[in-house]
Amino acid sequence: MALLETKDITKSYGDHHVLKGIDFTIEPGEVVAVIGPSGGGKSTFLRCLNLLETPTSGHVVFDGEDLLAPKVDLDRLRSRMGMVFQQFNLFPNMTALKNVMLPQMDVLKVSKKDAEARSMELLEKVNMTHRAHVYPNRLSGGQKQRIAIARAVAMNPKVMLFDEPTSALDPEVVHDVLDVMAGLAADGMTMVVVTHEMGFARKVADRVVFIDGGKIAADLPPEEFFAESNTNPRIRSFLEKVL
């Protein structure tokens, strides 16, 4: 059974139709790279997966539960879907360590001691133990994003959603973050990654989903997607611009 599935979701702001019917599934352990031109609806699609945006119509089914059902416990379901943002969205009023600890303690009711131990473990994984007691304003973008990833992983999510995680970073630190993400993928994490990093899509992703004009225009394994034989004119013109 698919871990996460959308059935014909649309999203409109007034007369502006951003998503025009998207059917999508992801199986446990899969890594899907979502690419496509700006304004094509990639981020809106991703934000519909954990209902940061409410689809205008359609269904989002996660782990067998319809997120749009009237009495669904959205907080509980969201706690099992990690999200990483382009702008990191670390809580500036707490240290790196506290950022990772807070959701565990607040949502999972983990004791302070256990949350701290688990958080230090994760900071170790993202090479940030030396910055554990620093407030985010003292961290570089790459460091912030690694902590944001640790914060999401700390919840033991079944799937992680990445919304252009490297777009706001200086080029020289992009690979630090991509390395962490590749490590997660290698550990078997299910991931949906909206990205402009074609290298990541090619090497790490199991599938590449190309969203253009509010629709999925292609959903292929990377070797097929990036192959010379893929003659879809929209994809060709997009790839020419980004590669």
Binding site: N50, L52, D75, R76, L77, R78, S79, R80, M81, G82, M83, F85, Q87, N89, L90, F91, N93, L102, P103, D106, V107, A148, R151, A152, M155
Partner: peptide
């Protein structure tokens, strides 16, 4: 910043918790 509320809610925090802590 509205990203603060989004980050808290996407971790599964309730709106009350997000308000209180973040």
């Amino acid at each position: 910043d509205k990203g603060q509320m989004e980050a808290a809610r996407s971790c599964g925090m309730s709106s009350a918790s997000a308000l209180r802590h973040v």
